[in-house]
Design a protein around this nucleic acid. Structure first.
Lengths: 144, 144
DNA sequence: TCATATTGTGAAGTTACTACATGATGTAGA
DNA sequence: TCTACATCATGTAGTAACTTCACAATATGA
């Protein structure tokens, strides 16, 4: 059976997930922890902020940060003004990992689009943009 | 910041995942259970077969099937020839859900590609095919 | 100052996974 | 036919990512 367009898109999703999961694993990370680290690239933030950024409960962030503290990627610091809050920041090791992630981001461009002409890539991006637009609308309408 | 091509692709992944997760949730399913049900569309199979199809350990299948038996989507039957094995099959309720999933698959085509001309869709699919090819190669090379 | 909201975490529970061990059964060979 | 070996499902035990609920400490606004 030749794959449908939806098949193709779902395979893309599947392959990308697998690729990223393997890449994270190489750094001793899980997807959730890698995601958290990614948010910390731009500087220390509050756990509450992380919860909002990752779309999970604050309680869950406590656990993820615990793990990343144990693995040496992250430290908890006193928030400069709010004594209730904690600032989570990257350690040098954490910074090394996020730097590698940024590089991997660039590599991914080459892997995905390296074989395409500028013209073809531009057309692909335009179409993708329209697809994303419809998908966003659908999510908004269907699930609020 | 305007999104990069990689950003666009990753947003697609993220939105599709969210959309599917929400859709499964509406049927009282998780992603793992929905995936298992999907495999059962074509008729009863062995738990071992499910393990290979989902790429997880047989032990994990035992747990997933337990859950789906409890929720009434699936039954365990005696394997017709191999007394070691179990045949897992859809209940009428399970069939109803997989039928709905098939329909959702068709809906997804409309959501994603409804606004595209035949020409544009064909070009998109060609590009996607080349992207998938490179991605497959990279997965193979990098991770075996 | 006093009521109310917010931050992070303990306690308890669910789901999806893993590895390892084991009993029951299938299968191929001497 | 008996014996070795492989295979199927599952018990046990453990991890990671999540949830809700309760609570103590702290901020904030009237």
């Amino acid at each position: 059976m030749t794959p449908t367009a939806v098949d193709q898109v779902l395979e893309l999703v599947s392959l990308l997930q697998r690729d990223m999961a393997l890449s994270f694993e190489r750094d001793g990370l899980t997807e959730a922890r890698a995601h958290l680290l990614w948010v910390l690239r731009d500087g220390p933030v509050t756990q509450r902020h992380l919860a909002d950024a990752l779309g999970v409960t604050p309680r869950n962030i406590t656990g993820l940060v615990d793990g990343l503290v144990d693995s040496g990627h992250v430290v908890r610091r006193r928030h400069p003004t709010d004594r209730r809050a904690t600032h989570v920041d990257l350690t040098p090791e954490g910074r090394r990992v996020t730097d590698a992630m940024v590089e991997g981001y660039a590599d991914m461009h080459d892997v995905l689009f390296g074989g395409l002409s500028a013209r073809q890539l531009a057309a692909f991006r335009r179409t993708l943009d329209s697809v994303l637009g419809r998908l966003r609308v659908r999510l908004e309408e269907e699930w609020g």
